[in-house]
C-alpha cells in the first residue's frame, strides 16, 4: 500500500472531519422539535452507513477469497470487519445517547436499532471466530464462508424486524424518517459528515490492511530465515 496515498487520505479525512464538526456544532441550525440533541444525528447516520458498508465488504472479500484464494482478500475481510465493528458500536452508542432525551429510554426495540444490534452481534461472532482460529488457509476459507452467510441474512433481518415492529403494537411513537431535514443547511451538513466518515472508514481500513499485509510479510520472512537456518 502506497505510503503517500495513506498519508494523503489521512489529511483529507482530517480536513473533512474538521468541516463536519464545524457544521454539525456551529453551522447547522437546531432542529425544531428535538432541539440540540438532534445534532448527534450527523454522526450517527454516517456511522450506520459505514457499518453496513463494512459488512458488505466482509462478504465481498470473502467471496473473492474463495474464488481467487489470494491472501489479500482474507486480510481485507478481517480489516473490514474490525473497522466496521468500531463504527457499528458507535451507531449503538450514539443511538442510545439520542434515544434517551427523545424517546425517554436508552434502548428500544425499534426496527433499525434491532437490525443494527443483530449486525453488531454478527460482527462479533465473525471476529471471535477469527480470533479463535489458527492462521491457516483453511481458517481463512471458513471465515470467508461465515462472512458470506452473515451478509445473506441482512435482507431477511431487515424485512422481518420491520414487520415485527409494525405488527407489534408500538410502545413508542417512532419518528420514522422524521429527522426533519427541512433546512438545506441540514442536508449540506449531513453530506459533509457522510463524506468525512466514509473517508475515516477508508483510512482506518487501509491502515489496518497495511498492518495485516506487513504482518503477513513478516511471517514469510521469519519462515524463510527458519528454513535457511535449518537447512544445509
Amino acid at each position: 500500500m502506497n505510503r503517500n496515498f495513506i498519508a494523503m487520505l489521512g489529511i483529507v479525512t482530517a480536513l473533512l472531519m474538521v468541516a463536519a464538526l464545524y457544521m454539525a456544532f456551529l453551522y447547522v441550525p437546531n432542529e425544531a422539535t428535538q432541539g440540540i440533541v438532534q445534532r448527534i444525528f450527523y454522526f450517527h447516520v454516517p456511522c450506520a452507513w459505514v457499518a453496513f458498508a463494512g459488512f458488505g465488504l466482509v462478504a465481498i472479500a470473502g467471496a473473492l477469497y474463495l474464488w481467487l484464494g489470494d491472501q489479500i482478500w482474507d486480510d481485507l475481510g478481517q480489516a473490514a470487519a474490525e473497522t466496521g465493528m468500531v463504527f457499528c458500536t458507535l451507531v449503538l452508542i450514539t443511538g442510545s445517547i439520542w434515544a434517551k432525551p427523545i424517546w425517554g429510554v436508552w434502548w428500544t426495540w425499534d426496527s433499525r436499532l434491532t437490525t443494527t444490534l443483530l449486525l453488531w452481534l454478527m460482527y462479533g461472532g465473525y471476529l471471535m471466530l477469527r480470533a479463535a482460529a489458527d492462521e491457516t488457509p483453511q481458517s481463512a476459507r471458513v471465515a470467508a464462508v461465515l462472512g458470506i452467510i452473515a451478509a445473506l441474512d441482512v435482507p431477511v433481518v431487515i424485512v422481518s424486524v420491520r414487520l415485527w415492529r409494525t405488527i407489534h403494537p408500538a410502545v413508542l411513537v417512532t419518528r420514522q424518517g422524521g429527522h426533519g431535514l427541512e433546512d438545506p443547511r441540514m442536508v449540506a451538513t449531513l453530506l459533509v459528515a457522510m463524506a468525512a466518515f466514509t473517508a475515516l472508514f477508508a483510512w482506518l481500513l487501509i491502515l489496518r490492511l497495511a498492518t495485516l499485509r506487513t504482518r503477513a510479510r513478516l511471517n514469510r520472512l521469519t519462515l524463510e530465515i527458519a528454513l535457511a537456518e535449518a537447512g544445509d
Binding site: 443483530l118 452481534l121 454478527m122 462479533g124 461472532g125 471471535m128 471466530l129 479463535a132 461465515l146 452467510i149 452473515a150 441474512d153 431477511v156 433481518v157 424485512v159 422481518s160 424486524v161 414487520l163 415485527w164
Partner: peptide, 17 residues
C-alpha cells in the same frame, strides 16, 4: 461456545417469524 454465538444472531429473523 462458538455455535450459539454464531447461530443465534443469524437465526433471529426466522425466530421472529
Amino acid at each position: 461456545l462458538t455455535l450459539p454465538m454464531l447461530a443465534v444472531p443469524i437465526y433471529v429473523p426466522a425466530l421472529i417469524a
